[in-house]
Amino acid sequence: MRWPWQKQKIDNQRCLGIELHNSQAFAVLRDASGVVDRYLPDSDEQGLDGIANWLGKQGYQQLAVTISLDQRDYELHLVEAPQVPDEELSDALRFRLKDLVNKPLEDIAVQAFRLPADAYRGRMDMAFAAAIEKSRIRQLVDWCEQNQLILAEITIPELSMLQLVAEIEPETSVGVLRLDPAEGILYLYHNGGLYLTRPLAVGTNDLGLQDGMTDELSLETDSRMEKLALELQRSMDYFESQLGMGSVGQIWALIPDTIELDQVLPELEEAVNTPIRTLSLDSSFNRMPAGMPLTASLATALGGSLSYELAD
């Protein structure tokens, strides 16, 4: 995803991927072999100051960087796409968004991308349009300049995860499930395209997963598990029947940033009758010591960085 002010990529043998998530910042450093370093914020840390300190301590400068925006930083809308060339799509959709966003159009930047042509059985031409305040873009540009980083791309987590899924090359349609303590989100991808993104009103706390411990399942927990399974099933049904894309072959669950999720997945898998597996990236991308997995935010940061081509 390109923003109008962005410059050409520069050659570099390493790339820094950053994800902003729930007002915190996570980062991975990637070279040709994979992820060789990472930054995780403290539990009470906010903003980008922690990464800035880490960059200084590690001596990381003049790196290309991709930034995946916090979902609090942008609005994503699914709208009908006008019949214009792709390079004119973002400008054309600005006016479609004027009644959907709560900010003056002159204060926002819009970046749009179409759904694949086979969505909705080819009967509708739809597009996602991401709207972000220009002032937020300028903050990130200034921060990169202050920390001697070369900003290669600003993207959104939906597209960061698309880059990662495309790199893995699944043979079937896949759902990527991300659960935070109080909420979650499901992305549905097929053949290199994003078809559906759906917020989930259930998080790991609702499933009895808190502070690294699994509570005894209660009737309330069982009810929340059923609610999550129902939301997943409805999303997959929509993907199959309304979008006309067939059944979802599997769901990949991202490793939460602070807790373990594995022990609740078998029950969830049985409820939705679809294979659910933890998305482990260690063998393909992780070159850090054992015991340092690529959790959800790190995986998203990695996905964003994959859009940057490293120099040979």
Rank of each mutant, 00 (worst) to 15 (best):
R2L: 05
N12E: 13
Q13V: 06
R14C: 04
R14A: 06
A27E: 04
A27R: 10
V28L: 04
A32Y: 13
V35I: 07
D37C: 08
L40D: 09
L40C: 14
S43V: 08
Q46D: 15
L48I: 12
I51T: 15
A52H: 10
W54F: 11
W54M: 07
Q58T: 14
G59L: 13
Q62Y: 12
L63Y: 08
I67R: 07
Q71M: 15
Y74K: 15
P85Y: 05
D86C: 06
D86R: 10
S90H: 02
D91A: 12
D91H: 15
A92C: 03
K98M: 08
V101T: 13
P104M: 08
A112E: 06
R114S: 15
L115E: 15
R123T: 08
F128S: 07
A131Y: 13
R136I: 01
R138I: 14
Q139M: 08
L140M: 11
D142K: 07
W143M: 08
C144F: 08
C144D: 05
L149A: 11
L149Q: 06
A152R: 00
A152F: 01
A152E: 00
T155N: 04
L162A: 02
V165T: 05
E169Y: 03
E169L: 01
E171Q: 09
S173R: 00
G175I: 12
L186D: 07
L188K: 02
L188I: 05
G192S: 08
G193D: 06
G193P: 06
G203S: 03
L209V: 07
Q210T: 14
G212P: 00
T214A: 04
L219C: 08
E220M: 11
R224M: 07
K227E: 01
E231F: 08
F239I: 00
G246I: 04
G246Q: 02
W252A: 03
T258M: 09
L265E: 04
L265R: 04
E267P: 10
E267T: 10
L268I: 15
A271Y: 05
T274G: 12
I276V: 10
T278R: 02
S284N: 09
M288Q: 10
G291S: 10
G291T: 15
A296N: 02
A296L: 03
A299C: 04
G303S: 05
Y308A: 00
Y308W: 04
